[in-house]
Design a protein around this nucleic acid. Structure first.
Length: 368
RNA sequence: UGCCUCGUAGCCAAGCGGUAAGGCAUCAGACUUUGACUCUGACAUUCGUUGGUUCGAAUCCAGCCGAGGCAG
């Protein structure tokens, strides 16, 4: 019997993944990972769970345990707290210091779930690993999930073909609705559990309060990019991303104010009036640390610049092995640090990190 | 010191005798495995203050306080 280790998060998706694999005749083993330790990581400010008897992580473990008991499969547990800190969280903080907007969950997949996790699975004697991701793998290549609304291939675009081999995504073939139904029909306790959101293993938190634990915040001016007038005070540039509107705390305007740029040297946050402010739009970007899953370097394809944004047509110019220039008609809030993921139809060709953003051949200088 | 204008929620601002529009901000939900965006909802028993006129005032009158302007 083929052995598979399923990453159990305590949610519905991984529970159903395990169930489906078991049905298919695999020898299924659950593995629960722990990537964050509030005490070790000095995660104090803004942590709503410090005084709880049972932290959400422990609750998730218990949920996973119940599911495994129901399915009659063993559940192991492993700590990647150190690895997460070194490979994901360090990157996360470094990017923020540079004024960029990182995507930690992409790195969590690249450096944790599809690396030490796989090694642990092998150590447990498994041939395959599986997770509850909404995506599909065909011939070791990555494809979008059947359920377009839940598709998570964007978060997996930094994986290599090697990492994708011997990986199974059972729920990638199903819609969320079907997954919930299967869970319900099989009396899994997590059938109605709310989908988890927020940063991988840290969860939904007050972002600014959370950051205060790790980065000093320097207050500075908020300047209207059109009038050059000081209109407010920001509490640290790392707390803002391009296109953001909330948290500015500036009232009295006829229209909404959006973050359109920052100047790290002068510690200035630039804002513009209106959701269609021209300073938000670009038509070209340089992507670095490109990962091509199957080395398909086309010159025309689709791209997604932010999770849950629509794919748009792009022209690609390959600069060197891991940098490329993408051109597009016009797109709002393309932000350095975010991931640009390429698609050919349903196939995810790979992705990289947005490095620089241009408009009509002019670099958007405060766009970091 | 005299005259004029103005004082409505955190901000901007309608209302000008009939019982407080709207926008922004904020907060809460929805959406969402990245702080976004978007959507929905909440948000002044009260109109600088005191007194008066009136069946009834934020709206009219007077005093006071405060802001700005003109004169000196």
């Amino acid at each position: 019997m083929k052995k598979v280790v399923v990453g159990m998060s305590g949610g519905v998706d991984s529970a159903v993944a395990a169930l489906l694999l078991k049905r298919q005749g695999y020898d299924v083993v659950g593995l629960f990972m722990r990537n964050w330790d509030s005490t070790i990581n000095n995660d104090v400010l803004g942590n709503p769970n410090l005084n709880n008897d049972i932290c959400p992580q422990e609750g998730d473990y218990n949920d996973a345990l119940k599911v495994c008991e129901k399915l009659d499969i063993p559940l192991h547990r492993i700590d990647f707290v150190k690895e997460y800190w070194v490979y994901v969280f360090t990157y996360f903080l470094e990017e923020l210091k540079r004024g960029r907007t990182p995507n930690p969950d992409v790195m969590c997949n690249k450096y944790i779930k599809f690396d030490p996790f796989i090694k642990e699975a092998k150590r447990l004697g498994a041939e395959y690993i599986a997770t509850g991701h909404y995506a599909r793998i065909i011939d070791d290549n990555l494809y979008k999930a059947i359920d377009e609304n839940k598709d998570q291939s964007y978060f997996l675009c930094q994986l290599t073909k090697n990492q994708l081999s011997n990986v199974l995504f059972p729920v990638g073939e199903l819609t969320k609705e079907e997954v919930r139904k299967i869970a319900k029909d099989n009396d899994l306790t997590v059938a109605d559990k709310k989908d988890s959101t927020g940063i991988c293993f840290i969860g939904e938190r007050n972002f600014s309060e959370f950051l205060k634990n790790y980065l000093p915040s320097k207050k500075g001016k908020i300047v209207n990019i059109d009038t050059n007038e000081e209109v407010g005070i920001h509490y640290g540039l790392m707390n803002y991303t391009i296109g953001q509107r909330r948290g500015l705390n500036i009232g009295g305007n006829e229209n909404r104010l959006f973050v359109v740029g920052k100047n790290l040297d002068k510690n200035i946050l630039y804002v513009g009036l209106g959701s269609d402010h021209e300073a938000l739009y670009s038509n070209e970007a340089i992507i670095e640390q490109m990962n091509f899953i199957d080395n398909k370097k086309t010159s025309k394809c689709k791209a997604k610049f932010r999770y849950r944004q629509k794919d748009i047509d792009v022209d690609v110019e390959h600069l060197d092995s891991n940098e490329m220039k993408v051109k597009y008609s016009s797109l709002k809030a393309v932000t350095p640090g975010q991931i640009c993921c390429l698609y050919d139809g349903d196939e995810c060709l790979g992705g990289g990190i947005i490095k620089e953003v241009y408009k009509d051949n002019k670099k958007m200088v405060f766009y970091n």
